[in-house]
Structures are given as structure tokens and as C-alpha cells.
Design a protein around this nucleic acid. Structure first.
Lengths: 242, 242
DNA sequence: CCAAGTTGTCTATGATACTAGACAACTTGA
DNA sequence: TCAAGTTGTCTAGTATCATAGACAACTTGG
């Protein structure tokens, strides 16, 4: 150790610094996305060499808690949202279970007609009238995913307005008398974010996204809605449980 | 660190070993007075060099948790019993308050006659008949002190048998109708344990003892018993409170 | 574009931590 | 008395921890 830690506690200085910063992140002194103080400044507050601070930051970066950007600063990485994929998948419940505040926002709602693919997913005829809802979901204030959701315009007339008011797909379905629903097939792929979604997700261009196509069914197995969601890969982690 | 700790945790190996041993003491895997495994054996269980174990043991010894005896082994130091000296001093209550189990054992009871000193302490005449009780007191199974207690044989006939049965001075006095009593003068000195007491206290020769001479009085201030107690200095700590 | 501020990388030095081996000093039990 | 087992002490080598300074590479705001 150094002359600075009084009693040679058996804990390295860089570890003390790392723990201090981690505590700051945990208790919200440094929020997700925040810029940490500069290495020099941290070194001064802990009365420690800049290299020791770098060692601490490296340990935190290793665990994904912070990310250093050369020339700019070191930023708090939002902890990846653990997103379990079960038959009962509710965004608000998942986010809430992580101790974060779920939000939804309508981007756009419009009339559409079913392509052959959409028709098959929803058990409708090709060309059937649909409501298309473009929405974004956030945990606290961090955008997690943008979803395009299609519903039958005949079964759910005015669904766009209802979603704009309720900001929740679950509540929308309740409004139409659907007490419960469950997840049908879920397909997951990955891609690169396009410019539109990048702006919506507040992501730099070129970042990876997780693309999820899923259909929700009512309790009799009849398709209710089908969705095409794009998740910011760096903010979410899907958990598939046996 | 070494190559052995996989991820360079920032916590020194010797600290991990020390913490492990301390936990063992705290949860009773190593009881007070127990001999710890040899340094070599500890080194093997923690997959660590013997010198690292020695560093850990040195840290624990520094804090008084263990004591190394060359050629013999390293022993768990009993935490010193906090022994407050108040006007109402009851061994069993003091030990119980520390969460330990008080015990008493009669070593010997015999007839005696009052020396001038004893007579003065007890408010009797020189040569008055006395009962002399030699007893040992323990906390859990650790001997704390040996006491020689004198009582008037006229006021407390057969006191030796009563003590042998009750193993408690408080209960003995109750047996003779003494509901309460309090501590009179208390004199404290220190000395070196003699061979007899060393055996009784399970102490090595040459160890320091605290010698307490005290007289207990009934509520009217009349002397009841006078005692000469020898405490193992390393196992007890007297607290004088204002 | 430029200056200021940021992180990244290099060299260098000294103090600790850990390992390894050997032997001394001591205790214990046979 | 002796052998085995214990703690104490020494030397030595390697790796990590921490400090210090200098400069490169990059970002940001003016």
C-alpha cells in the first residue's frame, strides 16, 4: 500500500476509490449517463495519484459500470435492464421489478393495412384494416426500446387514442375487455440502429439493437397484437429462463 | 497480490485469511482458549504461503484476538470480560449480561478462625469461628477468578454445604434470609499467580492476576462476607463507572 | 482552427504483498 | 532424553500497488 492508508488495512487504495465511486452510482449521486468528475479531480478528492484513479475506473469499466471516452470524460453506464422473457411479459412489471420507473410514450398512431405477414400473425386476411402504434418505452428516463405494434382496427377501434391516454399496452387491452394475455412466439435478432430509431432511443449511430418480433395472444390463443420492437442492446439484457 | 487470487480483487490475501479466521472465532468454530490449526495447516486450507498466514495471524494478534505461543501453537484469546464495579456487584449478572454462561464451583470449604484483619472486616472478635469457602467462578467454561470467602460460622452455620449445593453466594445469603446486599469497600491490587491458583485458573505460571479484596454488607451496613478474589488479568477488565 | 480539458500510454522508482526455502528456538508427549 | 511439531526469523525473488512526470490522442466550446 502507500503511506496514505494509515494502518495497512489489506485493502488496496484503488479498491477504496472504486468502491467509493460505485457507492456514488448506487445511491444516485452519479446517475446513469452522467459524466464523472475528471480523473484529476477524483484523484484530488481521494488524495490519490491519478494512476490509482485510473486503476479504479478500469475495474469499474471492466464490470460495465462506467465507460471512458477519450478526450471527453468517463460516463456512468446505465445498468443493463434484466428483461426476462416469459410467457407473461409486461414491460411495466419488468422495469418496476428492477426498481426503476416504467414510462411509455406514443410517437405516432396511424391506419394501416395488413401485409400477408402481418395478416398471418394476427389471424386476419391480407389487407385487413389495422391500427399501427409507434411507441417508445423508458426505464426512469432512459429509452429502452421503440416498438411498432399492430392491432386489428375492427377489434380495437380507436386504439391509437386509447394508447396515447393510457401509455400502456396492457391498459389498452383492458379497455377493450381483455383481462389477460400471454406471449406467443418470440423471435429475436440483432441489427444496427437506423437514424430514426437512433434519435428516438438517444443512441449514437452504428450501435447494435436487439430486434424482437412477438405476438400476444388472448387466453384462448387468439392473436391480439403483434409487435416489432427494437431494443438498445447496451441497455437491456434478455433472460431466457427454463 | 499473487497469481492465486483470480481477479485481483484489491483485497490482500492475508486480509482474506485474517477475516476467515476471525469469522471462525466469532461463530464459535474456534472457541476462546482453543488452539488454532498450525500455520502450515491454515496455509494449506487457504492455499496460501505460510508467511501469508503469519501476516494474518499477526494482524489478529495485534487486535488481541489470538495469541501465539512459540513451540506450542496459536490460541484464541478470550475476549476480556467487562466487569463493572458497582455497589451492586453480582458475578452471575455481570457474566450473563455479556451473553456468557456463569458457573461457580466449590473447591473447598473449611472451618477457620478470624485473624485480626478478618475480624475487623466482618465486625467480629479476633478468633471468632468462620466458614472459609474456596470457590472458582467461570464464564462459559473459562475460569475467571478464584475467591476465598469468609463468613461468620455463627451467623451462617453450614455455609459450605449450602454453597456447594447452590454454587452462588447470592443464593447462599438468600438461604439465610438475606434478601439483598451491597458492596462495601473494594480494594484492587495486582500480582503474579501462584502455583495453586494457576492450576485452578488454568493459567501458565508467571501470569498477572488482579487481586480484589471486598466486603459485602447488608442493607443496614452490617458486614456479611469478606472475600479475597484473584482474577486472571488477561480474562477480565474492571470497569469503574462514575 | 485553436486552446483548454479530457483520457490513453509510456517510463521510472519505491514500497508492499506473496511465495519459497532454510534454520533457529521452543513445547510437547512418548 | 529425544523426536516430532510448533512458532520465530532470516534471505531471496517475483508480482502488484502506488507514486511521479511527460506526452500523445482525442473532444469540446469558442
Amino acid at each position: 500500500m502507500s503511506m496514505q492508508d494509515t494502518a495497512s488495512s489489506g485493502v488496496a487504495l484503488w479498491r477504496l476509490v472504486a468502491d467509493g465511486i460505485e457507492r456514488g452510482i448506487a445511491d444516485g449521486r452519479f446517475a446513469a449517463g452522467d459524466k464523472l468528475p475528471g480523473e484529476m479531480e477524483i484523484a484530488e478528492t481521494y488524495r490519490v495519484n491519478r494512476h490509482t484513479v485510473r486503476r479504479a475506473l478500469a475495474a469499474l469499466a471492466e464490470r460495465g459500470l462506467v465507460r471512458a471516452e477519450r478526450g471527453s470524460g468517463t460516463y456512468v453506464e446505465a445498468q443493463k435492464l434484466a428483461y426476462p422473457l416469459r410467457s407473461r411479459t409486461r414491460f411495466s412489471e419488468i422495469v418496476g421489478a428492477e426498481g426503476r420507473e416504467p414510462h411509455g410514450r406514443l410517437i405516432e398512431a396511424s391506419e394501416d393495412v395488413a401485409t400477408r405477414e402481418l395478416a398471418r400473425e394476427l389471424g386476419l386476411k391480407t389487407g385487413a384494416p389495422l391500427v399501427r402504434i409507434e411507441a417508445i418505452r423508458l426505464a426512469d428516463r432512459t429509452p429502452i426500446c421503440v416498438s411498432t405494434t399492430w392491432l386489428s382496427a375492427e377489434l380495437f377501434p380507436g386504439a391509437g387514442e386509447v394508447f396515447a391516454a393510457t401509455r400502456s399496452m396492457t391498459k389498452l387491452l383492458e379497455h377493450y375487455g381483455v383481462r389477460d394475455y400471454r406471449r406467443g412466439a418470440t423471435r429475436i435478432t440483432a441489427g444496427i440502429v437506423d437514424a430514426t430509431d437512433a434519435a428516438r432511443l438517444d443512441l449514437p449511430l452504428g450501435r447494435p439493437i436487439l430486434v424482437v418480433d412477438a405476438t400476444d395472444l388472448d387466453l384462448e390463443g387468439k392473436p391480439l397484437v403483434t409487435k416489432h420492437s427494437r431494443f438498445a442492446a447496451e441497455r437491456v439484457e434478455f433472460l431466457v429462463e427454463p
